[in-house]
Amino acid sequence: MEIIESIRGFISTEICSGSVQKIDDADLLIENGIIDSVGIMLLLGFIEEKFAITIDGDELIPENFSTIATISTLVGKKIG
């Protein structure tokens, strides 16, 4: 719960600068243009720092960043 909320908070405030009203767990972030190529740099920087993990190679695929839920699952898996 904490993971998903902090990811939602970061995307809403830092990536969208509050321009998107509410982002639900299953909202499509890439398809709806919420996350673009700079957005993903920001997001990766945030989750790697916040959760002390490294995401690279096979994990750096768009599917893992398609929704807040998939990002949260990836982070949860990495934290173990």
């Binding site: 190529s37 993903i40 740099m41 096979d58 750096l60 695929i61 768009p62």
Partner: peptide, 16 residues
């Protein structure tokens, strides 16, 4: 290289 659709992320990483 990598998966289909991974190109933009590869590009991003490579630029860094």
């Amino acid at each position: 290289i990598g998966r289909e659709g991974q190109g933009a992320i590869i590009f991003n990483e490579s630029m860094e």
